[in-house]
């Protein structure tokens, strides 16, 4: 249960990647998702891979956590690789097994596509491995600040997001408690057909919904009792700050983009 209470993949740490401003990390990843598609030859792919691997190493996140995040993807990576080898018939024949031929183009393309895949997942999970959801929410609120001018409720959304994230562990404990209580009375959630299990879920769902409504009501009342009335003039407990570290990382990233543009084939 203790383990299950940690939401998402966050691994606490003290590395450079952990300490970067979450806004820096989000910006970088946002652009990374686009520049991955710039790479189209061995050299440009190497630059991307190097960037991703170096970030991974300096984040000092234990490799098994990274692997855990990648588990569901392995199948896709292998599958696309094999598909490309079978279907793509370009370049010279490398291997012939009976009437089936493997072409060099297929192998290259298979590797390139799988690698792109792998890099995207690696870098995006690096963000969630080194940044708490609350930090990400704060960062997004800050980055979307200009939208307030067009009456977009940035503050309200961020507040709701924080409440949501805050309540996941609470609700999880509650679910655990209720499901144990119902299990002790003989409800079986884990076996049986979909129909049986759906029926078994009702005595769990009803108390959960009732208590979720109750919690919402209590929290709303508590907020109002403390004078909450919208975003105007609220101050923050945690202030975000960009410092030299972040600027250095931005410069490095710009260098990576420049390197990609120089080395990719046109």
């Amino acid at each position: 249960m203790n383990n299950a209470l940690i939401i998402g993949q966050y691994v606490p740490g003290n590395s450079l990647v952990h300490k970067l401003d979450p806004r820096t990390k989000i910006t970088l990843i946002f652009f990374f998702v686009f520049i991955v598609f710039l790479a189209n030859n061995v050299l440009s792919y190497s630059i991307l891979t190097l960037f991703a691997l170096v970030s991974m190493v300096i984040s000092r996140v234990p490799i098994r956590f990274i692997m855990k995040g990648l588990t569901p993807i392995w199948f896709l990576i292998v599958f696309t690789f094999i598909l490309h080898i079978i279907v793509t018939k370009e370049g010279s024949v490398w291997l012939e097994i009976y009437s089936f031929q493997i072409y060099s183009g297929g192998v290259f393309q298979g590797i390139a596509i799988s690698l792109r895949f792998f890099l995207l997942i690696l870098v995006t999970s690096l963000l969630t491995l080194t940044t708490t959801p609350i930090e990400i929410t704060d960062a997004i609120e800050d980055m979307l600040h200009p939208l307030k001018k067009v009456k977009f409720p940035v503050h309200e959304l961020a507040l709701m997001m924080s409440i949501s994230l805050r309540f996941i562990p609470t609700l999880m404990q509650e679910t655990d408690k209720i499901s144990k209580a119902q299990a002790s009375r003989g409800v079986d959630f884990r076996t049986g057909s979909i129909k049986d299990r759906a029926k078994a879920v009702v005595p769990l769902l009803i108390p959960l919904f009732v208590s979720a409504f109750k919690r919402a009501e209590e929290l709303a009342m508590a907020m109002e009792a403390r004078g909450y009335n919208g975003g105007e003039g609220r101050t923050k407990l945690r202030e975000l700050k960009i410092n030299a570290r972040d600027i250095a990382v931005y410069l490095l990233f710009i260098a990576v983009i420049a390197g990609l543009l120089l080395t990719r084939g046109y």
């Binding site: 507040l159 709701m160 949501s164 609700l171 999880m172 679910t175 979720a212 907020m223 109002e224």
Partner: peptide, 23 residues
Amino acid sequence: TLFMVEVAIFAAFALLLDIIPFL
């Protein structure tokens, strides 16, 4: 305020139902 809080808590609820393995 109640609207905001309720929507937020139910979004958390949805996520929770998605990540609890036996459900």
